[in-house]
Design a protein around this nucleic acid. Structure first.
Length: 580
RNA sequence: CGGGGCGUGGCGCAGCUUGGUAGCGCGCUUGCUUUGGGAGCAAGAAGUCGCAGGUUCAAAUCCUGUCGCCCCGACCA
């Protein structure tokens, strides 16, 4: 491959685009890799297209290596496939819907579980056919409430999705492990920094699920990591270790007058001053009321969640824990309908008789004693003991996770970071096979329900993540595997530099390198240097003022090093630098 | 959905308060000079100022409406 800057369809920008906030967005636009078309929708220019294809190639090679077979579904899909699993309605506004000329409903595929399942059902029928794994690299469409950060979170994006079909749980586990290994190879080859995190299997009803998160300040996901034992988990999936149950005798429950203590801080200050309890916010029990809606039905139940008063409820964690139920805020009119719930002074002591479910943070163990609401305006209760004064209906992971919290595996302090999800592997189980009645006929003549795994890689997102993780003040710094070229040859000078550069480019191309050569006439050296740094090709060869003395300059974009080398060694030196 | 900000040549912006010939930088075209860090000089091309209505002798500027875009939030009872 040989690209010439003199004819390459490329225009770099000197300034950041006004609508870009994050580094990857700014740089990919400035360097002429992508252009915005509409919110969350981008065009890929030649260099961007090459990088995108390189990522796709790596993904494809590693999927093929584990025996997955590539297929391609349409992005434009008829409604009926999504009707059978209920997702035509469940997906809500995120689904791009459209009608054909006859008025029939269509959608742009946000994901393709239904299509894969249906395809396998149509072709395979014997246990001898299994296991099988299929994948595609496809454009997906999701009408996100808020697309952001350029191609990091778009409404149209390229994703590799694959599905494994197995006869039993052991097979599923093997398919899952194969994918896990493939993903490790993919992200290692791409040069992405990532962490494998435990994730919630959530509504999909699966058993095991892990996310590949790329640590990144601009990330939307929060994850915890333990430096000691290597445990890592999405914040939504973190398990809170329960302290040992308390058995020692506790003083009896005591109701306290606590006027004007609407917040935890004011409550703590008040009881310490007037009752000398010497407590902290962590000794109080905060009770949050939510409504939980069951999707697909009108059923709404009231739920109270108890967490230590020094912690906020993390709505995302709550949501994940309640899934498929959807928590909603308990409004003033809801309080009006439940006079037993005294806003600001709710305690769990009365929930049983009110018939309201009560779930507590795992720290609220049997025998633990709390200061909490007394279910009367202006009153709280002290020495309220779990198991004695109230009986929780179970535990729930809803409290926020904080840096320094105990690792659930080894007890060391956890750190918290943000990341971007670039891959997800997931033991789906039989949900879709059940919906589609996907069976194989067994050796005994009886049907075997197939069990599935679902696996995704954000291909276009990976491009943005690389830009996000690998850049400096001058521009992009691509790893060689995805770079638009192996070497960027800059010819600059008023003598024969451009011809020499062009000749070197042809020689190196013939030796198997992907070459980008700046052969633009009448362009000043400064511009060419700046562009080379902005574009981010890993190896840069400058053919400039030294050429009449037989000297050229070899640069390493990532290391920032430069070295003068003899012109007649240039070809071999570049080949060596490019690992060819 | 809530809050904030912004719509002016291809890109980045000023002008609006206080109405009066639409401007700057980058980019682009032509010529000459220049060639190791986003060159210089000269001459050019290119904008119905998001859209609609209103006020006015006169609107990018004031008023009303509307559309779009960007950012933050989506919870703390």
């Amino acid at each position: 491959m040989l690209l010439r800057m003199s004819t390459l369809f490329l225009r770099t920008l000197r300034e950041d685009p006004a609508d870009a906030e994050v580094p990857s967005h700014k740089l990919l636009v400035r360097a002429g890799y992508v252009r915005r078309v509409a919110p969350g929708i981008y065009s890929w220019l030649p260099l961007g297209k090459i990088v995108l294809e390189n990522v796709a190639r790596v993904v494809r090679e590693e999927m093929d290596r584990i025996g997955a077979q590539e297929v391609l579904f349409p992005a434009l899909l008829p409604r009926d496939f999504y009707e059978s699993t209920g997702r035509w309605t469940e997906y809500g506004d995120t689904l791009f819907r459209l009608k054909d000329r006859k008025g029939a409903d269509y959608l742009l595929g946000p994901t393709h579980e239904e299509m894969f399942t249906d395809m396998v059902k149509g072709e395979y029928s014997s246990y001898k056919d299994y296991p099988v794994t299929l994948y595609q690299i496809q454009t997906k469409y999701r009408d996100e409430a808020r697309p952001r950060a350029g191609i990091l979170r778009g409404r149209e994006f390229v994703m590799k999705d694959s599905y494994s079909f197995d006869l039993d749980d052991d097979g599923l586990k093997r398919s899952y492990e194969l994918h896990r290994d493939a993903y490790i190879r993919i992200f290692d080859r791409l040069g992405i920094d990532y962490k494998i995190c435990f994730a919630m299997s959530g509504a999909m009803g699966g058993s095991a699920s892990e996310e590949f998160l790329a640590p990144c300040d601009t990330g939307e996901d929060t994850f915890v990591a333990c430096r000691n034992c290597g445990y890592a988990a999405n914040a939504e999936a973190v398990v809170t270790p329960a302290p040992p149950a308390v058995t020692a005798g506790q003083p009896p429950l005591e109701v306290l007058d606590t006027p004007d203590t609407p917040t935890i801080d004011s409550l703590v200050a008040h009881v310490n001053e007037h009752y000398g309890l010497g407590i902290t916010a962590a000794d109080t029990l905060k009770n949050i009321v939510v409504k939980v809606r069951t999707p697909g039905s009108d059923e709404v139940r009231t739920l109270v969640v108890g967490v230590p008063g020094d912690r906020e409820v993390d709505f995302k964690r709550l949501e994940a824990s309640l899934s498929p139920g959807v928590p909603e805020i308990f409004e003033a009119e809801d309080f009006a309908r439940h006079p037993g719930l005294v806003r600001g002074y709710i305690g769990p002591q009365v929930l049983k008789e009110l018939g309201i479910d009560y779930l507590v943070d795992p720290r609220v163990v049997a025998g633990s004693s709390w200061v909490t609401g007394a279910n009367e305006p202006g009153k709280h209760a002290a020495h309220v003991v779990a198991g004695r004064d109230f009986q929780p209906d179970g535990t729930i992971e809803a409290a926020e996770v904080r840096p320094g919290d105990d690792c659930p595996r080894c007890g060391h302090a956890l750190s918290i970071d943000r990341g971007i999800e670039i891959g997800h592997i997931f033991q789906l189980g039989r949900k879709y096979a059940d919906a589609a009645q996907l069976d194989a006929l067994g050796p005994d003549g009886k049907p075997i329900r197939i069990t599935m795994g679902s696996y995704g890689v954000g291909v276009s997102r990976a491009v943005a993540v690389l830009a996000e993780q690998l850049h400096d003040g001058l521009g992009l710094v691509w790893p060689r595997e995805v770079a638009p070229a192996d070497v960027h040859i800059v010819g600059t000078g008023k003598e024969n530099q451009v011809e020499v550069a062009s000749g070197l480019a042809e020689t190196l191309e013939a030796r198997g390198l992907r070459v980008l050569v700046d052969d633009r006439p009448q362009v000043s050296p400064g511009v060419k240097f700046k562009d080379a740094e902005l574009l981010g090709v890993p190896t840069i060869l400058i053919v400039g003022r030294g050429v009449s003395q037989g000297v050229v300059e070899l640069r390493d974009r990532a290391a920032g090093t430069k070295e003068e080398i003899p012109l007649d060694e240039a070809v071999e030196r570049v080949l060596a630098a490019c690992g060819a």
